[in-house]
Design a protein around this nucleic acid. Structure first.
Lengths: 229, 229
DNA sequence: CGCGGCTTTGATGTTCATCAAGTAAAGTGG
DNA sequence: CCACTTTACTTGATGAACATCAAAGCCGCG
């Protein structure tokens, strides 16, 4: 029996994983889940803590990152709902290898990991869905990091701006969800040089910049810098 | 019934994935598998080709890499048996996103992917094993690429040498399985600068180099370069 | 108002890619 | 097996890309 107060049936994310559940299984998912809200800047997952839950993003935007011994952050990826769920590490490790923080106000939904593991025993399509999504998440992160690695700074920054415009906001004018330092952490360069690159794009008439607000003026040039820079 | 000529029961890799199979399932695995031998330098998987099989490495050493439009290779990872199986992409994509080539004479064992998918329906522990291994493979590649990204050239080369000595060969004297160019493809720098760095290590008395043969003379210095450089 | 964090610009030296040239090694055909 | 070709390796010189250090402007917040 699905409890009356269960709204999982209406959740788009249900179809990513919890297809073909019988009603007893749906009930486990629905009554066991916990929704949590996080304000911009709030920590969602802390590196080194025990993995107890399967967490996915219902709304908002988050960054995954690793902090090294010198307190320097490296951003692994940035993700919207559907494009990231906490699948890295959770089936192979006891603790998280990375942290997750909200870049915008975000909502997560979490389930007890042991419940998921039990459900896998009974439901092969859940297992396949998990395999598919984990494969997607990992592929995307790996390919993205190769993309960044092969470019110079200008290309990396351009790539990041195009990513925000096309994939995240679907608009050529948007507010950067990252500080300059975070952009640097993502592309693997210093804050100063990221700023210098942005200023250069501005001077060349490719961008308009008002603090965190970015307006892409000449997208075709920006795209060619992203590709060949 | 397990056929008499089946040697899967003796294979160490069986225990990674095919635990808890009943005999009918074991038979599918055993009679459906194909073993292939590859000489050093031979292509095992070609980027862009259809994914039809689940392939894992029985012996040898391989490189995973991506070739860009300008024919430049980027090495994603290098792997021994157990530490890599073709789990990336195979549950999320139709075609391979990367190529695999043998760095030493290698043997693979492959199964038809559709058979694996059918087995998942009947056997939850296979699904869990696959989830665990995919999670491990992806984690390792992602964390490794972050490690490399945060270092300068000297640190990257030192890191790679320590990796060969400790993880791959368990000896401080070994033959490099990579050409200078391949080392460059892996650390994301030019061939010339990799060579210069090796020469510098040699001049500083950290290494002895005879062509492809490397002898680590001062491992503690090399390790500190790998960590802090 | 003033403090602290984020941002911006400049100056300087280091790290690195590129170009050029030469040497060693490895494969090829007669 | 040797001349020949090709490929891998090595070193040097040069300028571009980048990190680091320093200093100043900006902005929100107590």
């Amino acid at each position: 029996m699905i409890p009356a107060n269960c709204n999982c049936e209406l959740c788009d994310l249900k179809n990513l994983f919890f297809t073909n559940l019988d009603s007893a299984q749906s009930n486990i998912v629905c009554s066991g889940k916990t929704e949590k809200e996080f304000a911009t800047g709030e920590l969602i997952i802390k590196e080194g803590t025990l993995i107890k839950d399967f967490i996915y993003l219902k709304s908002g935007l988050v960054k995954l990152y690793k902090t090294d011994s010198r307190q320097k952050e490296q951003i692994i990826t940035i993700a919207r709902p559907f494009y990231y769920v906490s699948l890295l590490s959770i089936f192979s490790d006891e603790v998280y290898n990375y942290s997750v923080t909200a870049l915008e106000d975000s909502v997560t939904c979490q389930l007890v990991l042991d419940d998921i593991k039990k459900l896998i025993d009974e439901n092969a399509s859940l297992a396949k869905n998990l395999l598919r999504e984990m494969s997607l998440v990992a592929d995307r992160i790996i390919m993205e990091s190769l993309e960044i690695k092969k470019k110079y700074l200008k290309g990396r920054v351009a790539h990041l701006l195009i990513y925000f415009a096309d994939d995240i906001y679907q608009k050529d004018e948007f507010d950067l969800p990252l500080s300059r330092k975070e952009m640097a952490d993502y592309v693997g360069m210093t804050t100063e040089n990221v700023i210098r690159t942005l200023s250069e794009f501005r001077k060349d008439g490719i961008l308009k910049i008002y603090g965190k607000t970015i307006m892409i003026v000449d997208k075709s040039i920006l795209k060619s810098i992203a590709e060949y820079g």
